[in-house]
Every structure is written in C-alpha cells, then in structure tokens.
Write a protein that binds this DNA or RNA. Sequence first.
DNA 1: ATTTATTTGGAACATTCATTCCGATATACA
DNA 2: TGTATATCGGAATGAATGTTCCAAATAAAT
Lengths: 203, 203
Amino acid sequence: MEREFQFNAMPKTKQFDETEVLVKAREVFSVKGYNGTSMDDLVNATGLSRSSIYDTFGDKHGLFLKSLSHYCTSQGDELQNLCAKTDSPKKKIRAIFDYTLKSILTDKERKGCLMVNVSMELNAVDRDVAAISLANMEDMEQTFSALVKEGQAKGEISKKFSPKALGRLLYSNLMGLRVSGMNRPEPDALKEIVKLALSILDE
Amino acid sequence: MEREFQFNAMPKTKQFDETEVLVKAREVFSVKGYNGTSMDDLVNATGLSRSSIYDTFGDKHGLFLKSLSHYCTSQGDELQNLCAKTDSPKKKIRAIFDYTLKSILTDKERKGCLMVNVSMELNAVDRDVAAISLANMEDMEQTFSALVKEGQAKGEISKKFSPKALGRLLYSNLMGLRVSGMNRPEPDALKEIVKLALSILDE
DNA sequence: ATTTATTTGGAACATTCATTCCGATATACA
DNA sequence: TGTATATCGGAATGAATGTTCCAAATAAAT
C-alpha cells in the first residue's frame, strides 16, 4: 500500500495569552523595578514556566522591553479613547490629567507608572529604555501641543504661549503629578495640583 | 615595680573622609540605581575595601540610606545658600529652578537626581526610602509655600492661588523638570518649561 | 491510535551577589 | 620602642541570580 508523505503534523499550541503575560510582568516590574525583579518573581506572577518565558520572550530584558512597549501602546490607545469622548480640546487635556489622577488614586500597591519608574531607574544605563521613554515623551508632547493648537484656534485656550511650549509644560506637569502621587497619593492635594497646572490654559 | 593599668592605646584612624565616600556612592547609585549597583561597583567607586565599607556603614542598604540622607541635607543647604543671595521671594523660587536646570544640563553622565531616581525605583518596596522621599517632598513644598506667602505679602506674586497650593504645584513642577530633563536634556526646551511653570506666579 | 512538533516543568549550571572572616598592617599613646 | 586596637585587603562563603537543558506532556492532524 502506498503511504502518503506526511505534512503538517501540528504541535501543542501555547497555553497562555501573551498579552496577559505582558500585563502581569508589567505589574511586577512596576512594583519592584527592573533590577529588583527576579525571574522567580516573573515565573510566580505570570504562572508560566521558565522555559516558556525564554521560548517566547528571549530573556528577562526581552520580556521587560515587550512589557514596557505594550504598556506604552495600550496607554496610548486609552488616551485616544478618552479624547474621543469630547470635541473640546481643552476637555481632552483635562481628561488626560483626570485619567492619570484616577490611576494614581486607585493604585493600591503604589506601583506607579512603569514608564516613569524605569526611566528613572535605567535611563542612564539602558539605551533601549532611554529611547522608548524619549519617544513616549515626544509623543505626549506632540499630542498635547496639537490639542493646544486646536484649542487656541477655537478660543478655548489662552494664546499667551505657543502650542509647543505648552505641550512641553503639560507633559512635564503630568510627570510631576506622577512623582507627587508616588510620594503622597492624597486626593485633594493632587486634584489641586491638576487644577493649578491646567490654569495656565485659561486666559 | 608597679605597672600602671593601661587605658587608651589608640588604634589606626580611618584613612578616608566619610563624606567623600557618601558622595562617590551617591554618584554610582544615581547612575545604576540601587538594585543595579553591586558592592563591587561601590568598592571601585569609593576606593575603600569591603571591610571598611561594612565596618563603617553596616551594609549596602545602610550605605545607601546614609548616602541618600546626606544628599538630601547637602542639597537643602545648597538651596539655603541660593536663597540667601537675594531678598526677593520670587527670585529665590526662580533661583531654585535655575539651580536645578543647571544641575541637569551639566550632568554629563545623566545621573539625574538620586532622590527622584530611587523614589521611583523603590518607593513601593522600601519604607525607608518612601519616608525619606516623602519628608523631602513636604520640606520642599513647605519651603515653596513660605516663599509664595512672603512674595504675595510683598506683592511680587499673584494672590490668585493659596501659598499651600502653589507650593505643591512648584514641587510637582520641579519633579516634572527632572523627568523631562532625564529624557531629553535640551537647554532651550527645559528653560521654556521653567519659564512657563513660573508664569503662574505672575499676575 | 499514531505521529509530529512544540510546549512545559523542573533539575542543573555557571555566574554574580552581599556578606563574613582572618591575617597583616598601621596608628596613637605609653 | 613597644603595645593595644582598629583598619585594611583579599580570600572565602553561601545564597540568589539569569540562563540552559532535557525528558515528559500535550495538542493537532493523520
């Protein structure tokens, strides 16, 4: 009897969702920092075995970078969604600050923001992180400055300063909020910081 | 012959200046982070032997905390000196921002500020660091708010917002400046951030 | 059920880590 | 000068680290 050549015997498929793993990993990295997180921590947090992690992400640094990038884009998407909810550029800016505020105040483990945390931890020694962090900064500044430009055109936002300069200030303020919130996540104080920070947009 | 009991045979004295060691250690911790810094790094940077470090500072964490505290107080003194150079509260505030700006722009290794760096790296897992960082924040806020109050009394600073609220915003802005500066230490952009951040003090 | 390719768990590995220890050295006073 | 005592250098230690490896388990197609 003639036996056919066998194609395509299919293997076991991955038993986990890569995105979920990236989220779990991000949470650990946020709490313990990059160098404070061990592979053991990651195995425990993700529920994967060492082999699966290495097979899928290469090594610790690879998993970390994927985790950071995923956080970056998913946060970007989140901001897009927020902005879609109103037509007013000024309200969009406020929504971004309120969202950050809320994420600080609901963060019971004091994880903070992975982007800020690891940028402060690693910028001087990790070019990959420095590049991602810089790109994120410029993206945020650009987003803010476009919103300011639009808001100024609509007359919602004071024309006293240029969109570019205000974009930079708003990013800087958002980072200041994260640092303040990490040190003392007190609602009233943080809300007041946002209020004053955004007052520069008014006449 | 009667032999007297012998007191006080004096030992070898320390061959190094403790403060200098704390400064060298701080530089390493700033660049590599707490968990990224090994005892080997510290031995190399300080020039001391392991024994001397352990004899003098207890352990790595002890050296780190002393280093952080020393940075904190020496930076506090520095700000006092700056403020002593003028009678104008508003100029004192500006001097603090300009000093920070200068320290960012002359920081060729991108060390950043140890206080901010380790606060972001360790706040969630190290109560000592969290306490020091919080104390530093409240101290700075208090300094700023006192200056604002004085400036408002002198008519130099707008009375639109309370000293307390402005104190918090100014601290937050200073932290934002450090984060922005870590990501992109570009003089013009940072100077503009300071300019806009301080514009809230004007009428 | 068999085959195939991959995942998976856990042991094993070499390295690096913080810390300890000891002999030698060096200082200040008698 | 001699002695007491702390510092110092470097080897030694044991735990923890990131990574590799292999046998067993497993899913998909035959």
